[in-house]
């Protein structure tokens, strides 16, 4: 499979870049940890709000959000790398050299995945160390991490699509802003039922809300809305793979 060979080459090179360059590696590790500390630590009192019904406490509640956030932003960070590759001309060399260009997208995606898995592992270890309680069994946890993984894939495909269309580092905010909004217009701090007014309306229609609530259900060992959540996550990944592949065509057309 030529596509796989190309993918392996691109992924290796991207990962090599990230893991030998602290300025690229550290932020994607530190930011999620920092958010976790700031949210879970600073706001722990929120689980005393009347109506807050998550059984495992606030640390576990926030862990799921930060895990999904790290998956989404990890994908966006990889998008920055793609944009940088286009700016330096490296991506053009890839386009010229690769016999199968779909492999390029696969390669960037694979790299993003490996990169996020490292972040997720560190985040999980830290969460367990600070005493996060886990209610779900192995299958439940597999469900949680699979959901997060799908979010990671969807995010990297989204960012790659933007990067390949705009082909400049200045596209950074264009990749980041929508992801940021989707993440924070979900029930970040309290369950959906405790949100009121306009934000409740927004969060209800926000597809990520389903994924977030299902993820929290998995961690607590009482999965809810699993089918909808997976449908949403898979749907986003499928949608953005089309977006990314068409972005690739646009990059090819631009030469």
């Amino acid at each position: 499979m030529r596509a796989l060979a190309v993918a392996r080459g691109v992924a290796w090179r991207t990962l090599h870049n990230v893991f030998t360059n602290p300025s690229l590696l550290i932020p994607s590790l530190v930011f999620p940890l920092f958010f976790f500390v700031a949210f879970a630590g600073g706001l722990s009192q929120v689980d005393n709000v009347p109506g807050f019904d998550f059984p495992l406490g606030y640390t576990a509640f926030q862990f799921v959000f930060v895990l999904l956030q790290s998956a989404a932003f990890g994908g966006v960070f990889t998008g920055f790398g793609i944009a940088r590759d286009f700016e330096t001309g490296f991506a053009r060399r890839l386009l010229l050299a690769a016999p199968n260009r779909t492999g390029i997208v696969l390669g960037y995606g694979g790299a993003a995945l490996v990169r996020w898995l490292v972040t997720a592992a560190v985040l999980t270890i830290v969460a367990l160390l600070v005493g996060m309680t886990v209610g779900g069994d192995g299958i439940d946890l597999l469900g949680l991490y699979t959901l997060a993984l799908l979010v990671n894939i969807a995010a990297v495909l989204w960012a790659a699509g933007v990067a390949m269309r705009l082909r400049t580092m200045q596209a950074g905010p264009v990749m980041q802003m929508p992801v940021f909004l989707v993440l924070f217009f979900a029930p970040v701090y309290v369950p959906l039922s405790l949100l009121q007014g306009w934000i409740h309306g927004l969060a209800t229609v926000n597809p990520l809300t389903r994924v977030l609530e299902a993820g929290r259900g998995f961690l607590a060992g009482s999965p809810t809305e699993v089918g909808v959540a997976f449908a949403v996550a898979l749907g986003l990944a499928a949608l953005f793979s089309l977006w990314a592949l068409r972005g690739l065509r646009s990059a090819e057309a631009a030469g």
Binding site: Q45, V46, G51, V188, Y189, V190, L195, Q196, G197
Partner: peptide
């Protein structure tokens, strides 16, 4: 202002804390 909107919406329930 965006962050204010996000936090004010998301954390409004916290005002019910004793």
């Amino acid at each position: 202002l965006l962050l204010l909107a996000v936090n004010a919406g998301g954390l409004d329930a916290a005002t019910r804390l004793p």
